[in-house]
Simulated scan of single mutants.
Amino acid sequence: MTGPLVTVSELAQLLGKVTVLDVRYRTGGAAGPAEFEAGHVPGAAYVDLDADLAAPPGPGGRHPLPDPAHFAAAMRRAGVSTGRPVVVYDDWGGRAAARCWWLLRHHGHPDVRVLDGGWAAWWQSGGAVAPYEDEVGPASPYPGDFEAAATGAMPLVGADEVLDLDLLVDARAPERHRGEVEPIDPVAGRIPGAVNVPTEANLDEEGRFRSAAELRELYEGVGVRPGATTAAYCGSGVTACHDLLAMEVAGLSAALYAGSWSGWITDPSRPVETG
């Protein structure tokens, strides 16, 4: 595998040689565990975004980063080992899977990919689906040996740094970026100076990531440049990872502002921009 994505055909050849994580999750969508038990990529383990990939809501936003020890323990339960490649998928265009990809990379796992097209692409391709007739309930993987390490492979920025960056990318929908509507958080608007690349722009009509050349043109078009200090944010720090994944596909890099909009507005002294 090369790059941060893996295709359905590649994953089909790799089953049994990689750890597969199912991170099905959508804001306001169907319950991931029930969908997982109804059918999943063979050998996959379910990872709960709220429980395993985030800390409880608070001053750090709606989905603060999980405690490293808690995250590592969750990954070990899912069978993740440092020396074994990991493939992550969801049913949300890669938005939830990108959060798991980012966290594993951030905490030192060297080989993590996202299944391009996710569960829909796997299902539509006719790929094998568990549980089989003789399989009951969720998968029970062998525990892994993953330990969270402070490698700095995927950088972070804090609220006190974002206004000094060369560029800040907002991954939310355009109407939320402009402050016209805010369906989730109590304040509408954006962090001053932020440019908008909604996650939908990263995907083609089939729900797969656009080519590296197309994504590079997209992000360079809003000002992302090698060597510039750049970060991405969203509503709660989850879908911003989708923009970071797209930039990685394009050969670009940026940090994550994990608190994102929901964390930014917990301090009323911080400026807000609309329009």
Rank of each mutant, 00 (worst) to 15 (best):
V249Q: 04
G251Y: 11
A232N: 14
D267P: 12
E248N: 13
I265D: 02
L252Q: 13
R225P: 03
A240Q: 08
A231P: 04
L252E: 12
E248L: 15
A240K: 05
E248F: 13
A258G: 10
A231Q: 05
G235T: 06
G235C: 10
V238T: 12
C241S: 07
P271Y: 01
L245Q: 10
G237D: 01
S260N: 12
W264I: 08
L245Y: 09
P268F: 11
L256D: 00
W261F: 07
S253V: 04
P268Q: 11
R225A: 13
I265F: 05
T229F: 05
W261S: 01
L245R: 04
A231N: 07
A254G: 15
S253L: 05
I265K: 08
S269N: 01
M247V: 08
A232Y: 04
A246Y: 07
W264M: 07
W261D: 01
A258W: 00
C241T: 12
S253C: 12
C241M: 09
P268L: 10
A240T: 09
L245H: 06
D267C: 10
L244N: 11
P268A: 09
Y233A: 08
E248R: 15
T239D: 01
H242Y: 07
A231D: 05
S262Q: 06
A232I: 02
R225F: 11
W261T: 00
W264A: 01
G227F: 14
A255I: 13
G259Q: 06
Y257G: 08
C234A: 04
P271D: 02
C241W: 02
L252G: 10
A232S: 15
A240V: 10
L252I: 13
S236M: 07
M247E: 13
A231M: 04
L245D: 05
L252A: 12
